[in-house]
Design a protein around this nucleic acid. Structure first.
Lengths: 343, 343
DNA sequence: TTGTAGGCGTTATCAG
DNA sequence: CTGATAACGCCTACAA
């Protein structure tokens, strides 16, 4: 079963290779009958064109790539459907490129761009805190989606779509303060010197300050190094330790809903109640936050709209339409659930 | 910035293309100094080899593909890490190929095999209820992971790794019966004439029968057509309707943990309690089942082991080692949580 | 150790 | 409408 090539098909049909190529690619100038015949032969003999050869020869494709770091983030999953939908309508296809934690997403992007003749790229998650120059040098349109814009990225050229992590974090912690909480613990990623960990922490600090509350270092908790970050397991472990330490607090802000759910587990397991003994607030607004019992008070990111906007911006860029704003900050929604209460 | 090719690099270095090629591919017979110089030039000029051309020329790669239908299934996500880990150790890389709901995964697989010179394929989820012949005709080793083996697949050639869906479903429903439940509702997928929906339903029927309980059609619920299957939202909607109908039941089996969590929401929202008013049982054993409150009674699939076993089988197949069992049924674990109680 | 040339399977160009 | 033929960018004998 030596692999069939276009030449074989041509030979079998008694036509030239270019004719076969025309048939495959739906070129207009071909006799319908010849085309039909060719397609039948292809069908019968299970001929499959070699994509590598095609990509090599083709000057362009209608493919865009979604680069995603941390594919196990439930938050991103909801966005895929939107991408599929939106791109499908516009006759584009997309491919999902996972990027390993240690990998350089820009290097991967460059390679893929060449290989697949990409039309555009969406970077999802991860941390492209690179020189804007490097991004431009990709040579094709891109959009950073769900990124905390770093200082270095504040140049107007970088295209991104995000929420204002610091501001939203500020908002929910402010809400906790308004409820009367003064001892608010926070769980932050271990290495949060930048990215969302840092921004959200800054929001926390700012909210406390506004209410005249000192940051108590004893209530600033760090995720465990040996458990994956932002998981329920991590939230559980950290919170359990907090409870055992006997430190006094009335509310807990966790920076992610998944972590919050783990935290609740630890609290409930210790025989305490949410929100009666401790208020708990999350971040992100994943589906589960709503279905969890008690439903979580959280900041809900408009993921569908963000996904849609990312596609729109990218396609505008690709098709050379004017892009009104290449840096869009979406407003998130403070979702008040049953996990927090006034004290 | 016309794309740099290997020829350009060769010209710049003042050497032949084959020398550059040797440098890139770590061939042994090359002067270390020339190699170093070439690598420097490559670095400086940002030369990136074109993968399409490489794949076209190459006769083999060390790539295996994971084909995944329904990428938003949290159940699969946990498996990725294992794949990454196991394959990384063995010097293989894998690529994730999502398959749309309507797409033919075998067609996609064939295409990819040609394009990437794949060494092997793992099919995750979906429903390859195809002729075993078609699978064999892929021409490369494959493993079906997490598939409910269909009748037509019981030929000994088909390689798969799975749990016994019917048996495990039987087990958890049997457990509910043992707790004294006689009116056990079930939520099944709308089109469950085959696949896991069917198998798990069969287990339910068999368990009831064992305990001399008639299947009450009024307690056999179907997922909503207009909401994605197996989501909390679906479980919520169906359960809410059930409660409103006033039909009498004491336990609910949902075929998936995500659905179960939605169901619990509906129950709690109606002012009832879990498990005091209704026992709820799920299936799969996702992380959340444990962290949810009350923790769910469920069937926990050994996903890590299954992932590991899939890789092992595939690599054994690829490297021509003897495969002791090419059809492995893993035992799942009945995890008794707080969502069910004796009546 | 290095360079030259041919070919991998397609598509694009250009005559017919 | 159709068929040669020349690329596409790389790898790999083979020759030097």
């Amino acid at each position: 079963m030596a692999e069939l090539t276009i030449k074989d098909v041509a030979r079998i049909c008694g036509v030239g290779v270019s004719t076969v190529s025309r048939a495959i690619n739906n070129h207009p100038d071909i006799n319908p009958e010849t085309k039909e015949k060719i397609m039948r032969v292809i069908e019968e003999n299970h001929y499959i064109p070699n994509n590598s050869a095609r990509n090599l020869k083709r000057t362009e494709s209608n493919t865009i790539a979604i680069m995603i770091k941390g594919i196990d983030n439930p938050f991103f999953l909801a966005m895929f459907k939107i991408f599929e939908q939106e791109l499908g309508q516009q006759d584009y296809t997309f491919l999902l490129q996972r990027v390993q934690q240690e990998e350089d997403e820009l290097a991967v992007a460059r390679e893929l761009t060449k290989e697949k003749r990409l039309k555009g790229i969406i970077f999802l998650g991860g941390r492209v805190d690179r020189e804007p120059k490097e991004l431009r040098e990709l040579g094709i349109p891109y959009v950073l989606c769900t990124f905390a814009p770093e200082k270095s990225m504040l140049t107007p050229q970088v295209n991104y779509i995000s929420i204002d992590d610091e501001e939203e974090s500020y908002r929910i912690v402010d809400y906790l303060c308004e409820l009367g909480h003064k001892k608010i613990a926070i769980i932050r990623p271990l290495y949060s010197d930048r990215g969302i960990g840092r921004s959200r922490y800054n929001g926390y600090v700012r909210a406390l300050k506004k209410h005249g509350i000192e940051v108590d270092p004893g209530l600033v908790l760090y995720m465990k190094d040996d458990i994956e970050a932002f998981t329920p397991a991590n939230g559980y472990a950290v919170t359990r330790e907090l409870l055992e330490s006997g430190r006094d607090f009335t509310a807990l802000f966790t920076m992610s809903d998944t972590t919050a759910i783990g935290a609740c587990k630890a609290i409930l397991e210790a025989g305490k109640r949410v929100p009666d003994d401790y208020s708990v607030a999350g971040f992100d607004g994943i589906d589960m936050a709503n279905y969890y019992h008690p439903s979580l008070t959280t900041i809900c990111q408009p993921k569908e709209e963000m996904a849609r906007a990312s596609i729109k911006m990218l396609l505008d860029l690709i098709e050379d339409r004017p892009v009104r704003q290449n840096q869009q900050i979406f407003a998130a929604e403070l979702l008040v659930g049953e996990s927090t209460k006034q004290i």
